[in-house]
């Protein structure tokens, strides 16, 4: 009998497969393709205290084995989420985690405080790593003092599981990870997108309206696996790995590097059923390898 449940620092998931924020909408967008209850959880679109229109078009460019995006946290704000979207998320049969972003410590806290009223949201993922907003975002995730300040402030107003999503755009991710852990993070997810850029040579212009954007997809996977391996060895809280996972094999790379759970992101755009397929594929893997749980291989490297 295979047991895929994971305890993510008090947050219990039926399996270790989550969908990454910004790649899975609010779940309903994918309901035609899978039973959403097959997932360990859904991390919904980045939510901010106030509505945001995001960046101008063009926001996306495909690059070798990946894509750049510059969406810029387009969302209708936390109040819209609470009144219009939250009621539609009951009965999905999976954990719903809200990704929270902001341009100031006060704005992060305002969003988290409003979400604290919503009892069925058991966890938030604090996004201190968005490369696509002018203020805040990644600035909080690339400096230990700033990271500790925002994580600590949200910790005081958010009573349940606090996952903190880290930026890879740093020299020493372990230092940021420790700062977030010390400030009260219950788990760490990594990596957010790598800052990148592409030029439309025909038009002699940047491919994105914002010039730079966030790189995701298989191209970033080796960087992500390396960072998960480094951070998992250095912190006590569980680590959630993401970055270019497209298959069971890719998910296992992160788990063997020490990840407690994984998130599927860009691959949802290629195969809208992939997250559920990876969840069932992990169970098949355990049976094939005669494992009772993924604990037997977690962090083996």
């Amino acid at each position: 009998m295979v047991n895929l449940t994971v305890d993510l620092g008090g947050l219990r998931l039926k399996n270790p497969v989550l969908t990454a924020s910004g790649t899975f909408g609010y779940g309903h967008e994918y309901a035609d393709f899978m039973d959403l209850s097959a997932l360990g959880g859904i991390i919904v679109k980045g939510t901010t205290a106030e509505p945001r229109q995001g960046n101008p078009y063009p926001r996306m460019a495909e690059t070798p084995s990946g894509m750049l995006n510059a969406v810029g946290l387009q969302n209708k704000g936390v109040e819209h989420f609470a009144t219009e979207i939250y009621p539609t998320l009951h009965g999905l049969g999976t954990e719903v985690i809200v990704n929270v972003s902001g341009s100031s410590v006060a704005a992060y806290c305002a969003a988290a405080e409003r979400l604290a009223d919503l009892g069925k949201i058991h966890a938030i993922e604090l996004n201190i790593s968005c490369p696509n907003v002018r203020q805040g975002g990644m600035a909080f995730g690339t400096d230990c003092t700033a990271a500790a300040e925002v994580v600590g402030a949200v910790r005081r107003v958010w009573p349940r599981h606090l996952m903190v999503k880290l930026s890879p755009n740093v020299t020493d991710i372990v230092a940021i990870a420790r700062a977030a852990e010390d400030a009260g993070a219950d788990s760490l997810s990594l990596i957010n997108t790598l800052l990148g850029m592409a030029v439309d040579v025909e038009r002699r212009r940047p491919a994105l309206s914002t010039v730079t954007g966030g790189l995701s997809g298989p191209a970033v996977r080796p960087v992500a696996v390396r960072m998960v391996w480094q951070v998992a060895k250095a912190v006590k809280v569980p680590v959630v790995g993401l970055g270019g996972i497209c298959s069971v094999r890719d998910a296992l790379e992160f788990i063997m590097a020490g990840a407690m759970a994984v998130q599927i992101g860009t691959a949802n755009f290629v195969n809208p059923r992939i997250a559920a397929d990876i969840a069932s594929g992990l169970a098949d893997y355990c049976r094939r390898e005669s494992l009772t749980s993924l604990d037997e291989i977690r962090g083996v490297v």
Binding site: G22, Y57, R59, T266, N268
Partner: peptide
Amino acid sequence: NKMACGLGACLCCVE
């Protein structure tokens, strides 16, 4: 418009 998911999830193709 250039799009990624085609499903209304990624918000890349906005007009």
